[in-house]
C-alpha cells in the first residue's frame, strides 16, 4: 500500500522519471513520469503504421494476460502491444482457468510465474487484486482494471489522446459524465488529469457519484462535482461520457435509460455549449442513444476510434517500461 518510493532528493538526476516496478495506480506516478510515458507512446505510435509492425525491444520476455473479467478490447490491446514489442504472450481467461476448480488468486499467479514470466497483466473484479499479486510475485504487475478502483492504462491513453488532439493537458476543462461510482476509468482519469493540471468537472445523478470523490484530485489541477450537465458543458474542451454499466449496478440507480439519455446523454444540441474544437471521448463499448448520441459518436469531434489506436501505443510504452530489466527499478 506504500504509494511508491518517493525520490525526494535521493538521486542526483531528478529529471529521470521513476517508474517503479509495478503499474498499479496512477497515484503512484509523478506528473513527470506520466509525461515520460506519454512521450514514449508518441514514439511507439509510428510502429503501428509500418509495413513490419514489430520491434525487438522485448524479445525473449514473457507477458501474461491474466483476465478474471471478460474483456475484449483491453486484452487484445495488451496482446497486440506485447507482440509488436516481440514479447511472448500468454492469455489466461477465467473461464479456462483453474479458478473454477477452487484455486486461489495467489496460487494461480504463482503457478504461472513458475514458468518464468516477466510481466503479469491482470484484470480482476476485486479492487486491490493487482496489489496482492505485486506483493506476492517477482514479476512486474500491470493493473488492467481492478473492480471500481483503477484502470491506469485507460487513464494514460485518455491523457495521450487529449494531448495529441489539443496539444496540452494543463488548463483544459474536462467533463466526465456518467456512473462515477462504478467507473475505474473515471478514477484513473481524474487522478491523471488533475496531476497534469486539468480542471475536471464530474457530472452525474447524485446516486452515481460517491461522496468524497474530489479527494482523489491531486494538484495542480482541480475538480468540481455537479449534477447539471448543461452547466458543466459550458466552455468544456474535452467531454468524456462513461458507459452506463447496468451490469455493475445491483439495484437500479436511475429510473431508466431514456430518462438518463434525456438528462445526461451527450448529443449535438448539448455540444453547442462546449468550447470550439472540443473533443468527445469514450472508453468503449458505447451504448448508442444512451450516454452518447449517434450524431456525436460518429462526428469529427469523436476520438473513440483513435483512442483504440492510441491504446496500443500507450500499452507498448507501459510494457516497455514495466517488463525489461530484472525488476531492479523498484
Amino acid at each position: 500500500m506504500s504509494p511508491s518510493a518517493t525520490p525526494t532528493g535521493s538521486t542526483p538526476e531528478t529529471t529521470t522519471p521513476r517508474f517503479g516496478k509495478h503499474l498499479l495506480s496512477l497515484r503512484d506516478l509523478s506528473a513527470d513520469t506520466i509525461t515520460a510515458l506519454l512521450n514514449t507512446a508518441d514514439g511507439f505510435l509510428e510502429i503501428g503504421t509500418r509495413t513490419v509492425k514489430k520491434v525487438p525491444a522485448l524479445r525473449g520476455k514473457t507477458v501474461v494476460n491474466l483476465f478474471f473479467e471478460p474483456s475484449t478490447r483491453t486484452r487484445t490491446s495488451f496482446e497486440l502491444a506485447a507482440k509488436r514489442l516481440s514479447a511472448d504472450v500468454l492469455n489466461i481467461t477465467v473461464a479456462a482457468s483453474s479458478v473454477v476448480k477452487g484455486e486461489t488468486l495467489t496460487d494461480t499467479a504463482r503457478t504461472i510465474e513458475a514458468m518464468n514470466t516477466d510481466t503479469v497483466v491482470i484484470r480482476h473484479a476485486a479492487a486491490g487484486a493487482p496489489q496482492l499479486l505485486a506483493e506476492t510475485l517477482n514479476s512486474h504487475v500491470i493493473n488492467a482494471g481492478d473492480g471500481a478502483h483503477e484502470h491506469p492504462t485507460q487513464g494514460l491513453l485518455d491523457l495521450f489522446t487529449i494531448r495529441r488532439a489539443k496539444g496540452r493537458i494543463e488548463g483544459l476543462n474536462v467533463v466526465i459524465v456518467g456512473d462515477i461510482t462504478h467507473s475505474r476509468v473515471a478514477r484513473s482519469g481524474l487522478i491523471g488529469l488533475t496531476k497534469l493540471g486539468a480542471h475536471v468537472r464530474l457530472v452525474a445523478p447524485p446516486t452515481m457519484i460517491p461522496s468524497g470523490i474530489e479527494k482523489l484530485s491531486e494538484g495542480p489541477g482541480d475538480v468540481t462535482v455537479g449534477y447539471d450537465l448543461d452547466a458543466a458543458l459550458k466552455g468544456a474542451d474535452v467531454i468524456m461520457p462513461l458507459r452506463l454499466q447496468l451490469e455493475r449496478q445491483g439495484a437500479p440507480l436511475f429510473p431508466g435509460k431514456r430518462e438518463y439519455a434525456t438528462l445526461y446523454g451527450i448529443n449535438r444540441e448539448r455540444m453547442a455549449a462546449a468550447a470550439e474544437g472540443a473533443i468527445v471521448m469514450h472508453p468503449g463499448p458505447i451504448n448508442r442513444g444512451v450516454e452518447i448520441a449517434h450524431d456525436v459518436a460518429d462526428s469529427d469531434q469523436s476520438t473513440i476510434l483513435s483512442q483504440v489506436t492510441h491504446g496500443v501505443a500507450v500499452r507498448m510504452a507501459v510494457l516497455y517500461h514495466y517488463s525489461a530489466g530484472q525488476g531492479a527499478a523498484a
Binding site: 515520460a36 514514439g43 510502429i47 525491444a57 516497455y320 517500461h321
Partner: peptide, 23 residues
C-alpha cells in the same frame, strides 16, 4: 531513426530510456 528499441543492452537496464519517434 530512433534506435532505442534495437539497443543490445535494453534487457540489462533497470530504467528504460525514453523512445523517440522514428520518421
Amino acid at each position: 531513426l530512433d534506435i532505442t528499441l534495437y539497443r543490445d543492452d535494453l534487457g540489462q537496464r533497470a530504467d528504460q530510456p525514453e523512445v523517440r519517434e522514428t520518421r
